[in-house]
Design a binder for these strands. Structure first.
Lengths: 340, 340
DNA sequence: TTGAAAGCGCTAACAT
DNA sequence: ATGTTAGCGCTTTCAA
């Protein structure tokens, strides 16, 4: 690997001059510049960013901590963040935690050791265990939270307006004539799950319907739960005519349950789901869903983080960006009215 | 951010001693060690890996160049690589190229500047344009190719045995009594697409059937192509009774085409697909598919790369690891239908 | 405009 | 066993 020194020697100039042409400094003699450029090419010289980082005290690297890249929600998010990062000359380093706080701590520690300039964080569900996050911020590493907001911390964030998204979706179900609308929620430890439930309740309240606890089930965002709880709901004395599922994986479980019980969607029961699955518009039934602007969350999050990193965003209080979800109405809720 | 010097001062020892306890060097006086550890805790000291990297001439970072994380094939691959990297103390930096050679070059250049210790590469389709890859290897940066093999380069690689996987799959179709088996291939520029076709041909040859060009269509691994080409095939004078699709996205297009033509699978036509979609066993029809050991490819690839990086793998000639695909037989190719 | 040199935080070789 | 120090490759004063 060629060094700046070797380049300087070959071009017969000082390292300072090489450095100047690299950062295309205003005044360098064109002749020297040409010699330097030639030397760089001849030696296949790639400036050592490690050495540079040490000197300038910034790595131009961003950390990103997510739960599991294998979950279809995250790739878009990561891609968004990476696109923004790259556009600003930053590199993105990702870290999977599988939603375990221990691994989140480890990730933060490693990332701090690597001197990343900032981190994008999708917090793992942790009942108030956030000292590691606070410590990182205290050490001067900016953090922007994506999607979920950690409890008890003032921190920048970018997320979807889950309340409103859910509300709009349930409104849609109501507008289709449904009155007995069941909901399968996520784990109530998660803010996002709470918000989605809140939106559901708000929509019902608007319609002057009372919330029936029999129509509510708490799940955990996984397929099995959706499957089990849907069956459960279908065995009720009075069956719901519509089902609002709190995330995509559970909706798949719900569909499986319908198949097993020979019920058809939307004829026998309508289904709407928070989160758009990549294939929601490909497989039958095409699912009505609340699509989050996933790529945008990642993109905006990274941009905000970079602003903080570069000191261009100096608001003392945390910035909280809320993005709108988009209701995609598909066949799973659009059959003609069902009489209750 | 605390430095090693500050820690030394606070613990009343020399920086050398601090360095020793950090690398838990054999002999350090337990008393001093305790003092150092205390100082580290008090100062929330995280050793600067940037400085360390500069000194020891290795970053413990691996680059990974993929086409698009948003494509459902990659997350598992990345996760596998990351799991292996982390287990060995390496960090993974990913880079999306959208299959464009220009971006692949850029990625390689950036990664070299960052002084990654090695790179995992899923090559973009490039007709022989591989000087950037050769130059990187010549500069002493080990490369391991995943999934696809670049043309005209001797390089370590880990991939699925596409030929065999396709062959086994088509054999299965034959065993179900099919004789007119159509295939929608990927872009013939890609080695993987060629291999899958080769497996198809091999299976037919075994069965002493001749290859009918009318049963072959070249696609591009995207949904639209699958949709269009399937329709095309169904309009033939003699319709195929089975269809082997070269990847998951195109299979979805094929299913869409069936729906539109009111044909049912597998009653009217069987479908088998190379690549397992995340939801292949969830949505109907459950698709018979050739599942690649995706996580394992990533994992083994990273392990191999790390061996090269650490000089534990010194074989001069490239190592070429071929992993077996697994045929998952589901309802899309099995005679009797589960529901109408 | 260009060159010389200090110093970023760490490791490792050497001195004590 | 512990301390001292050179130097990794770069940027950035400061001098010439």
């Amino acid at each position: 690997m060629a060094t700046i020194k070797q380049v300087a020697k070959r071009a017969n100039v000082s390292v300072g001059t090489v450095s100047n042409v690299l950062s295309d400094s205003p005044q360098v003699n064109p002749l020297l510049r040409a010699r330097v450029l030639a030397a760089i090419r001849e030696l296949d010289y790639h400036p050592d960013q490690v050495a540079r980082s040490l000197k300038v005290r910034q790595t131009k690297m961003l950390g990103m901590i997510i739960s599991d890249i294998t979950n279809p929600f995250f790739p878009q998010l990561i891609r968004g963040a990476e696109d923004a990062a790259l556009a600003h000359g930053y590199l993105l380093v990702t870290f999977n935690t599988d939603d375990r706080v221990e691994r989140e701590k480890q990730a933060l520690s490693v990332l701090r050791g690597r001197r990343v300039d900032g981190v994008l964080l999708i917090v793992a569900p942790a009942k108030g265990d956030n000292t590691h996050i606070k410590a990182t911020m205290a050490a001067g590493v900016p953090i922007v939270c994506l999607d979920r907001l950690p409890h008890g911390i003032q921190v920048d964030s970018v997320s979807t307006d889950h309340i409103k998204g859910a509300q709009v979706c349930v409104r849609h179900l109501l507008s289709q004539g449904h009155r007995r609308i069941a909901m399968i929620t996520g784990s109530m430890e998660l803010q996002t799950a709470q918000d989605r439930l809140e939106g559901y309740k708000a929509a019902l309240k608007e319609a002057r319907l009372k919330i029936d606890p029999e129509m509510l089930r708490e799940g955990d965002f996984r397929l099995e739960a959706g499957h089990r709880l849907t069956k459960d709901l279908l065995l009720q004395r009075v069956r719901p005519t519509a089902l609002f599922v709190s995330n995509g994986m559970m909706a798949l479980g719900a569909i499986k349950a319908l198949e097993e019980t020979q019920l058809s969607c939307p004829k026998d029961i309508a289904i709407a789901v928070f989160d758009d699955l990549p294939l929601a518009g490909v497989y039958r039934p095409y699912l009505t869903s609340v699509a989050q602007p996933t790529h945008e969350i990642g993109y905006k999050g990274a941009e905000l983080l970079i602003q903080r990193v570069e000191g261009k965003m100096t608001s003392a209080k945390p910035v909280r960006i809320l993005l709108e979800a988009e209701l995609k109405i598909r066949e799973s809720t659009t059959a003609k009215l069902i009489s209750p």
